[in-house]
């Protein structure tokens, strides 16, 4: 097999698997998130309403795993789309590095934003 063909797949297996694992986390987590917030708390959503929910470790865990799994799935999905439009060789690695930085910074920012609720 030509080297560039191998390269296209190199390191892709773990990201492919993680895309599937985060997909399952998102399907289950979003079902909980959307039903609880938009069916049972519609109209009551407020700072205190969120605080009361996130005070339970269960919803804190749901929110943080949705943040992490959502960011990974979204950014890796974006990468999959961009790879269809001519990102090859070193461009692929630069793209992956940029997306990792965006993901880690966004996760840190999201956790920072939730911190007063998580520690209340």
């Amino acid at each position: 097999m030509r080297r560039d063909v191998i390269e296209t797949h190199a390191g892709g297996m773990w990201l492919w698997l993680l895309q599937r694992v985060t997909a399952v986390v998102l399907v289950v987590g979003l079902a909980v998130h959307l039903i609880v917030l938009h069916a049972f708390n519609l109209g009551d959503l407020s700072y205190d309403n969120v605080a009361a929910r996130v005070a339970s470790w269960f919803f804190a865990a749901v929110d943080l795993s949705l943040l992490g799994a959502g960011l990974f799935h979204a950014l890796n999905g974006t990468r999959m789309v961009l790879l269809d439009y001519g990102f090859t060789g070193s461009n692929r690695r630069v793209l992956a590095a940029v997306l990792w930085v965006v993901g880690v910074v966004s996760f840190a920012y999201g956790t920072w934003a939730l911190w007063p609720w998580l520690t209340a």
């Binding site: 700072y47 969120v50 943040l67 959502g70 960011l71 979204a74 966004s106 920012y109 999201g110 920072w112 934003a113 939730l114 911190w115 007063p116 609720w117």
Partner: peptide, 14 residues
Amino acid sequence: YLFAHIAVISQARL
């Protein structure tokens, strides 16, 4: 939407 959502919810702390 995910990034818009993070931006909106983080207004709680901001």
